[in-house]
Design a protein around this nucleic acid. Structure first.
Lengths: 201, 201
DNA sequence: TTTTTTATTAATCATTTGTTTAATTCAATT
DNA sequence: AATTGAATTAAACAAATGATTAATAAAAAA
């Protein structure tokens, strides 16, 4: 299934990913990529046929990584709901701090490439162990009965949106990037607590 | 202060806004705009000097509208904190349902045009009546003491992020656009309740 | 070593894109 | 009616861009 990439291909992909993440598809030129990866311009088409195709490969891989990080935790058999919340919050915030352009890239380029890429999602989240555990809690009468989509949406919203709106937050609070990250580290602990308060009766 | 725009200028601006919102700055060409607005290509530069300048005008106005909607409610003298939450939630969701591309556009193009546009924000939110009311609640011991930035961020996250991630939600739940909107109408009521539960001791 | 295949390069092509020019039409002013 | 300035147009320009070609170098197979 997985393709083996040569050194040159990896160089191209690495540079392309970095540029696509930072500037988006349209604002990134093939010459940008060739320069950044230090390969000849023609090699891009030689290996990846077109800019579009190259982008699709990167988009797919990136989105897959983005979702996997969540799905793995959501489907862990041993952990409780609360532990899953803590782990998701922590892992996601760590991941995005390392690659701050990730969420904007994903949500932004997603609206143009919907169905084919979004197939990855099928059932992975709405039929996860986490949602089961939430539904169990509802049956037991400890959690409120609302559509689990709200539960799942809220988790992601509280984790991801602050990164997407980081320019606004940084301006409002006169934060440095470091201070902003500290705010996000704080949220690692806070978000699971908030989510629990939201669902508890 | 406010410039009077001629018919032609309005036609250009309307078309340009629609296209910029949908496809972003780089993916929108001046010929797209000229076609969509049914004006001669040269008129774009005649009235707005350059694509860049035109974009900046639209970006500024759009961001201003986006923020004003919030700021007006946040600074209302008569309403309680709870009423402000309900009104914000309701007005924002209504606004974005009408213009679904708005949030993605704002957050996405914002990272390229930071300081000059973000000046609008200065103090408008963090020194608002809403934040005062939150701080009062903290002093009275009814709300938890956390940095109000979290409070403000959470409101916006729960309202706006679902729209940004609508392709994901729609795919996960096999929603139609109509069903998705109904989910968002549901959230009008839910979000203020959630926020209160998050801050209450 | 020779041959064949693969990888890399510089140059070039055909479009696209933002912008400008010069001519023309339209509207207001004298 | 004649004149002036603004608005509009078609055509063109120069630069940028995605992609291809034909030649060369390197590696693998014979």
């Amino acid at each position: 299934m997985k393709k083996e990439y040569s050194d040159t291909e990896i160089k191209i992909k690495t540079a392309a990913k970095s540029l696509f993440l930072e500037k988006g598809y349209s604002a990134t030129t093939t010459r940008d990529i060739s320069k950044e990866s230090d390969i000849n311009l023609a090699l891009l088409n030689y290996y990846f046929t077109s800019k579009k195709k190259l982008f699709e490969i990167i988009m797919l891989e990136t989105f897959y990584d983005f979702i996997s990080k969540m799905v793995e935790v959501y489907n862990d058999e041993k952990s409780t709901l609360e532990e899953k919340l803590r782990l998701t919050s922590s892992k996601y915030i760590d991941m995005i701090i390392v690659e701050p352009h990730l969420p904007t890239f994903v949500v932004n380029e997603l609206k143009n490439n919907p169905s084919s890429i979004l197939k990855i999602l099928k059932g992975q989240i709405m039929e996860s162990k986490l949602v089961d555990q939430y539904n169990d809690g509802v049956k037991k009468g400890i959690y409120k009965r609302i559509d689990p989509i709200h539960f799942v949406t809220n988790i992601l919203s509280l984790i991801v949106f602050p990164f997407i709106s980081s320019p606004i937050i940084i301006k409002m609070k006169k934060f440095s990037r470091k201070e902003f990250n500290e705010m996000m580290y704080e949220r690692k602990k806070l978000i699971p607590e908030w989510i629990l308060q939201m669902i508890k009766k």
